[in-house]
Write a protein that binds this DNA or RNA. Sequence first.
DNA 1: GGTCATGTGAAAGAATCTTGCATAAAAGCC
DNA 2: GGCTTTTATGCAAGATTCTTTCACATGACC
Lengths: 153, 153
Amino acid sequence: MTALDSFDIAILRLIQHDNRLPQREIGEAVNLSAPSVQRRIRRMEAEGVIAANVAQVLPEAVGLPLTIIVEVELLSETPAHIDAAKQRFRAAPEVQQCHYVTGEADFVLILAVASMSAYEEFTRRMFFESGNVKKFRTLVSMDRVKYGTALGF
Amino acid sequence: MTALDSFDIAILRLIQHDNRLPQREIGEAVNLSAPSVQRRIRRMEAEGVIAANVAQVLPEAVGLPLTIIVEVELLSETPAHIDAAKQRFRAAPEVQQCHYVTGEADFVLILAVASMSAYEEFTRRMFFESGNVKKFRTLVSMDRVKYGTALGF
DNA sequence: GGTCATGTGAAAGAATCTTGCATAAAAGCC
DNA sequence: GGCTTTTATGCAAGATTCTTTCACATGACC
């Protein structure tokens, strides 16, 4: 993965907020021609610097108004159990984000669910039936104050 | 905000993973003409159902390899203090996501920072100098197991 | 039945993306 | 220094995609 120069950074800064900006406009903003912008974007996509191009959907609009953050502590923390948990969480549709963390918990999950009962069902399925969860801590979001994947660079 | 039908849902399902899919291809996948797909996407953008169209940038690539999750508990929880905290967190470039939550904490932050010392500097600036933070709990991400804004619908 | 509102597809037009190519700057190498 | 190689650039043409127009179909409501 080759290093990014200031043009790449400037392009990323723009498209991480709006990836439908025409290449011509990006070019004007960063002082580059449209084809150059395009080649740089393609290169960064190929390198994985740009992980994905996505539309951000309002959770409420698709019937998932509840955002819930859960800290999960496992009983067994052997590599095999950790990996099994990762796979489980990754595969669960309710899980929007999942982090394997150091500190007082093993995992932090961010969920998008339809209701508290949907969350309860999730906890049964993912925490109790698996048999490897020691405890979990639930934090219900009242306000998604800041949301998205934009970075501060 | 008018309700979404099954076509809208099908379109969202596709573009929340790849918003550069040609309208023609989306149309073929959902059995609609390209102009129809386009009008639906426009409508959903205008209504806010589609909150944004963005490129997801790999944090490592732009010098922010550390993802840190912080739970923050405030001293004073008056509405004025809550709002002040929301503004502070929203404005901080390190803060990628911020949730105001019920439960054992007031806020959950997800940070993207360059290093542990950058994080320490952040805690000084945001937690100590503000004077309204009772305590905070730090969880450092070792693995972004699942990451993004895609929803499971 | 008639009217209105809404959504649709086909086709033309506009804008954007993509590629080929000649050139220029930078890097490596005698 | 002078040469070659590599890499990136802009221009312009071509291909693709997006956008608009328009006539038509469907269903709701009197």
